[in-house]
Nucleic acid binder design. Sequence first.
DNA 1: CTCCATCTATTCCAGTTGGAGTAGTCCATG
DNA 2: CATGGACTACTCCAACTGGAATAGATGGAG
Lengths: 211, 211
Amino acid sequence: MAAPKSPKSPKLNLISLALLELLDEEDMHPYEMQQRLRDRGRDRLVKLTAGSLYHSVERLEKLGLITAVETNRQGRLPERTVYAITADGRAAFTDRLREMVATPDREYPAFPLALAFLHSLERDEAIERLTWRSTMLEAEIAAEEAVAGRLTEQGTEPLYFLDLTWQIAAHRSQLEWIQKTIQQLSTNSLTWPAPASARRAAAPGEDGDDR
Amino acid sequence: MAAPKSPKSPKLNLISLALLELLDEEDMHPYEMQQRLRDRGRDRLVKLTAGSLYHSVERLEKLGLITAVETNRQGRLPERTVYAITADGRAAFTDRLREMVATPDREYPAFPLALAFLHSLERDEAIERLTWRSTMLEAEIAAEEAVAGRLTEQGTEPLYFLDLTWQIAAHRSQLEWIQKTIQQLSTNSLTWPAPASARRAAAPGEDGDDR
DNA sequence: CTCCATCTATTCCAGTTGGAGTAGTCCATG
DNA sequence: CATGGACTACTCCAACTGGAATAGATGGAG
């Protein structure tokens, strides 16, 4: 039973995982995969571009996780190759999924770095920008909650949109943190230093120098 | 205005931003940048590899955001080129920073996708894996809190480790969500469908939503 | 004084990614 | 029945990433 997990299988990326799931339900050709992923809204969880998709399909085939089962052509349109998942493919999907569930991945989002540098802005500007961010976040949360509401009304099992409830929870917590921080900055309970960066007013195209 | 913000300046990536900050303090050569970034623990916020670093330096130079000011060599070691930030570089740094603070970036972490697929594991295994994840998260939080505690004792201004407090808050909220979800799964208040072995006959109707 | 591990410093290259391009079909419009 | 826009279906390529390789320097153990 145990497919012996080929020597050094490279970690499947997100697109590959999404593709394997699709092919587990039905054989199809790459373009159809793209459409289906979009229809399911998977493009909110995975960066979806033609280039990467076709490349991933190729790689999955080389790894033996999927196989071409048929090629056909309509008129003079480019040839379409229909792929099917293999037993190894199913195994690889579950393996990778288990791993992704169990282990937090070291990822590098931009915002923490921005926070690390926040002190190089002026205090007032920092507050302003953070406020902007919190507004956008509020909008995002509202949109997500609308979707979640609709799904619930339709009677979709919550298990099927765990990703959405996760996102909502994450965004709510982020929003709270930001609002709390704005508050602290405004009341000076989080103190701002003499900005060493104040000497360089980073206005582009400056010619006059500093007083 | 003098510097009309070059036609289509590509978005600076995280390394580039970190490099610009370093060079704003002092001229230095690439290897030193690497060391300093590590010393400051920036490698927690930015994926730091030699390849990307040297490549970024090259690109920054091409963009005119930094310039080589000196090259020297010690013995027969490879030549070191010392770089300095330019006025454009300073401007680009602040611009990008402002943007990163203000706008939440569409990023694609792995966990939400894993959650979207969670139902293809068996219920018990899902619980087990999530429990594992929560344990690792607890460890991470403990480590981060230890660091934060030390910094506070040393009298470092909280403004200078906002990134850490952010991470702690984020991780705490994630931990809570996971624990709550494990709870719901265990008590069956979040119901599991026919297990993985029974392939879904009726596809759950996730509608394509907007936004 | 020689060997080895470790540090200094950079280069190389095989993958990946993502945006742009290509090329044919299908349909509505004037 | 030419014209343009939307859709189908890939293909290409420039840029970026990250791991490995290179190659000399340095300090300490035997």
